[in-house]
Design a protein around this nucleic acid. Structure first.
Lengths: 223, 223
DNA sequence: CGTTCGCCATGAAACTGCTCGTCGTCGAGG
DNA sequence: CCTCGACGACGAGCAGTTTCATGGCGAACG
């Protein structure tokens, strides 16, 4: 499993990293919240182990920020405080478990295994909406104003991405990366093309346009 | 943020420049180390993105030279070699991070944000305010007194700069440099023109004027 | 073979920088 | 203290350039 450990105390960090490494996991270690945020946004981890108290950006804020960006990687908080309130805070922020320091390594290991095996995408959100547009991710259907809309796979993926970031501008580059998995190749206008096709089905037959062009930046849906 | 990209492959360079531009950064692009050295010595950049292999002067030597001249601008190396030794060389030369090609753009972006040591973007929702005026950088929207205002890209960039330096006078030269990327003063009054357009949208429809003229100096917003 | 997708070429629209005429402000001289 | 000239600021309109939208075509895929 691919794990991220965020812990500022070098002794603890090394202790954890070493132990998990010996169990055959791939472990990345960082000592502050800011770097961890950047890393976790860029890389897909199975589980994160996060200290509550961190320099730059504390563990709670870190996980909140990740959740806001739709990163659902399970998190285990390490905390030296044992109050119940802290625990609640942690879970509310989207963390999935917590451990009070000092802890037995075996316990940490067991919880990581448990979380890692958990079916991912536990996000109960299977329907995305914007105004009168609805997308059902399970049925793979899209309707607007009650009328069914047929989308090709690529169009569906594109619309899904826009809806998942409703209200926020998505740059061409972001779309290329997350919908097309393309890392280079600016010499193409696939995005424009598919936006056009999407609009033909989603916007043109209706009154109000939902997909907005933000010149010089990208596209946005809703709001 | 003001960024310098040094990359000799035009495709990659354009890809990077475009992506970062879409995120609202000001990007300068050069294709060889010698020019980059000169430029980086003359201009204050927030972060540099440097290819390891460059004509004239390779990336490693470039950064070493800069460090010798006490230029501490953080650098990210791009390398097609994945050996650990190369990484170590890079870090030893004063580079702050490295990326192996091919890389995901999001990763580059995240690292640039991290290195730019901008006071942490906590909730990924960056909003600039002045009185009843609000600018949401993620949504790319501007509202005043609850009413939505549509701005053109250049107007948006201009207002953003003013807001980032709220209360401080911004001279024409400063604005030309950071909003227009112009370092010498051509006999132009673009600034006045765009200030005027901005006012027409942001100030005129409302009671109180927010954008102040400081005769003989420049412009200021708020306070 | 039909569907889907990416690319190209074309046309349309948006954006931006400039010019230019007017207006307001400041300072010097009467 | 008033007048006049100079300079900067302002804003409308115009035209070049860039960006975006869209229809058609061929390749890939099953």
């Amino acid at each position: 499993m691919k794990l991220l450990v965020v812990e500022d105390d070098p002794t603890t960090a090394q202790f954890i990293a070493r132990g998990l490494g010996e169990e055959g996991h791939s472990v990345d270690c960082l000592d502050n919240g800011r770097d961890a945020l950047a890393r976790a946004l860029a890389t897909a981890y199975d589980v994160m182990v996060v200290d509550r108290m961190l320099p730059e950006l504390d563990g709670l804020s870190l996980v909140r920020a990740l959740r806001a960006a739709h990163v659902t990687t399970p998190a285990i908080f390490l905390t030296s405080m044992s109050g119940v309130d802290d625990r609640i805070d942690g879970l509310r922020a989207g963390g999935d478990d917590y451990l009070v320091k000092p802890f037995a390594f075996g316990e940490l290991s067991a919880r990581i295994e448990a979380l890692g095996r958990r079916p991912p995408m536990q996000e109960t959100e299977t329907v995305l909406k914007a105004a009168d547009l609805e997308m059902d991710l399970v049925r793979r259907t899209v309707t607007r104003a009650g009328r069914k809309i047929d989308l090709l796979p690529r169009e569906f993926a594109l619309l899904e991405h826009l809806l998942r970031h409703k209200g926020r501008v998505q740059t061409r580059t972001m779309l290329l990366e997350s919908v097309w998995d393309i890392n280079f190749d600016p010499q193409t206008n696939v995005v424009e093309t598919h936006i056009s096709r999407l609009r033909a089905k989603v916007d043109r037959p209706f009154d109000k346009e939902l997909i907005t062009t933000v010149r010089g930046a990208g596209y946005r849906i809703g709001d």
